[in-house]
Simulated scan of single mutants.
Amino acid sequence: MKEVYIAYFDFMGFKEFILNNENEVLIRRMGHIFRDIEVCLGQGKYQEPSNGVLLADISKSKLNCLNISDTVLFWTNGCDFEALQELLNVAYEFNWREIGYNFPLRGALVKGEIKEVSGKNTNSEGGSYSVQCLYGKGLVLAHDIAEAQEWAGTIIDKSIINDLKKEINGIEYLESLAVKYQVPFKNDENHEFYVFKLKKGIITDEALKNVLEAVEKVFSQDNKSIDKKSVQLKINNTKDFIINTKNTY
């Protein structure tokens, strides 16, 4: 096991998305998720265009990433401040890209222990045995924090905050990406955490209106139902966050 920083994201409504769409739509929309992962890892860097296609350049990223069905994981190779900064930047961008434009999610950033096992063997009969497994107490912590939330958003756990406090301007750096907020949880309780802002630049009433409409659209697109009371609660909690923190952008 090794101690690292982990960003855990879980898509909401993913089962309904799979069941309510044809294969062509699923393949296209999953391609959008893969694109966003690569763009975030590239952090504004792109390869030379080829046949009119522009691809993110992830060759300089020091992060690891694993996407399994409705879960996306990013993690560092250690616990140095430079690695944490990259993880914060990538996770911040992935959070607002998905919630604002692509797919509703909830997430958590934590510090904890994990173990990665990866490999594939193919025999002479054409059968194969593949392992792509990430496990450990750090992953359990991130999963529990993410699953407990009753909105679309991402919490930065106190294990991350404690390390940022040890760095000069560490909290100041975080506050360019995150804000303290009373996060709604499934047990009808609210607890204050640092959470990612959804996007910089909400400075006018028209911009706010557009962001709120975009959030509801993302919850409902791909033939996902928003009629259930539980889904409406998540949408309203997400909108409340945007409205109540609009002056922090």
Rank of each mutant, 00 (worst) to 15 (best):
E189C: 02
I37W: 03
N64P: 03
K224C: 13
N20G: 10
G119C: 06
Q132A: 11
S220K: 13
K209F: 08
C65H: 07
K60N: 05
H32K: 15
Q221Y: 00
D227L: 13
Y8S: 04
V110P: 15
V218S: 02
E3I: 07
N23R: 10
K120Q: 14
L73K: 00
E189P: 01
K45Q: 13
D222Y: 14
V110S: 01
I37Y: 01
I156D: 13
L139H: 06
A142I: 04
I18L: 15
Y8W: 06
M1W: 07
I202A: 05
N223W: 06
L177E: 03
N244Y: 09
G170Y: 10
S69Q: 08
W75Q: 01
E82A: 12
F74M: 00
G100R: 10
T76K: 07
V195L: 05
L73Q: 00
L26K: 14
H143D: 10
S69H: 12
L54R: 09
M12R: 08
N237Y: 03
D227M: 10
N237S: 06
Q221M: 13
G153H: 09
E86Y: 07
C133E: 06
P49T: 02
K229Q: 11
K45L: 11
P104C: 02
N21P: 15
E147D: 07
V179G: 11
I171M: 12
I114T: 13
Y101E: 15
I171V: 14
Y46I: 02
Y194F: 12
N95D: 15
G119Q: 06
D57F: 01
E22Q: 14
G107V: 08
D36V: 08
D157F: 11
I171T: 08
L177S: 05
I145D: 04
S225G: 03
Q221K: 10
I18E: 07
L177M: 15
E175Y: 01
Y5T: 09
I6N: 05
N89K: 15
F219A: 00
S225A: 10
R106K: 15
Y46E: 08
Y194I: 03
V25E: 11
I161G: 00
E86S: 12
Q232M: 12
G201F: 02
T71K: 04
C65E: 00
I171C: 05
I242P: 02
E206V: 08
K158A: 07
S61N: 00
F241L: 09
I168F: 11
I171A: 07
A146C: 02
A214F: 02
P104R: 03
K239V: 04
P104W: 02
D10W: 00
L105T: 14
G52R: 12
I99A: 04
K197Y: 08
R28K: 14
A142N: 07
G42I: 00
F219Y: 12
G170I: 04
G13S: 06
K111F: 00
F17A: 04
A142M: 04
E82M: 07
S50W: 10
E48V: 09
